[in-house]
Amino acid sequence: MAADAPATAAPSVPAHGWRSSKLPDMKLMMWIFLASDIMFFGTLIGTYLIYKGRSLTGPYPQDVLDIPLTTVSTFVLLMSSFLMVIALDALKRNDIGKFRLWTFGVAFFGAIFLGFQVYEFNHFVDLGLTLQGNLFGTTFYVLTGTHGVHVAIGVLWLLSIVVASYVRPWTSKDATNLEVAGLYWHFVDVVWIVIFTLVYLVDFVPGAGG
């Protein structure tokens, strides 16, 4: 019976069972998680903006924020996204050496960004901006800290991928695993662009400061 069936039209059935969507489950899952994460960051950014200019005591944003310094760390984070793209491309071409190198590069750049953030937090505390000091401190640290935790998880994830690719050698068939991590990484990057704009840059636009 199977012999005279139109084999060309027959859909392929993977070993884990029939799928009605062409998108791999993991990738769909990540998209939904990111949709949810938008609401997490949206709430934190909303809280920051609502409380902007309501601090009763200093230091205020203009007193502590250092645009040139954060521009550098922002640039590093953006470049890590570029490395992410070529890492995935390398894995899809089955160039395992390059895939490991660039994936490690993404994690390394992410770690540099985190280093900047640690320096920045220390420096701000020295300038008198604390979690408990005023509303700017409270909302700033919780918002950027949450983003930092996202970056740290991403770094850990990408390093784990590099290690895992030695434990059980990866091939281009594993590209979905990296792509899902990449989706997460790009998202965390985009969130930083929003934070950098709304928290850092806005305060230095003439007339828009609060």
């Binding site: 939904i32 949709a35 949810s36 994460d37 609401m39 997490f40 949206g42 709430t43 934190l44 809280t47 979690l131 408990q132 005023n134 509303l135 409270t138 919780v142």
Partner: peptide, 23 residues
């Protein structure tokens, strides 16, 4: 997926207020 994050953040803010002295 869209409604629980605002609650989660709001709960976290209260936990921070009570535990870490945020404002």
């Amino acid at each position: 997926v869209f409604a629980f994050p605002p609650l989660t953040i709001a709960l976290t803010q209260i936990v921070f207020d009570r535990t870490f002295g945020t404002l």
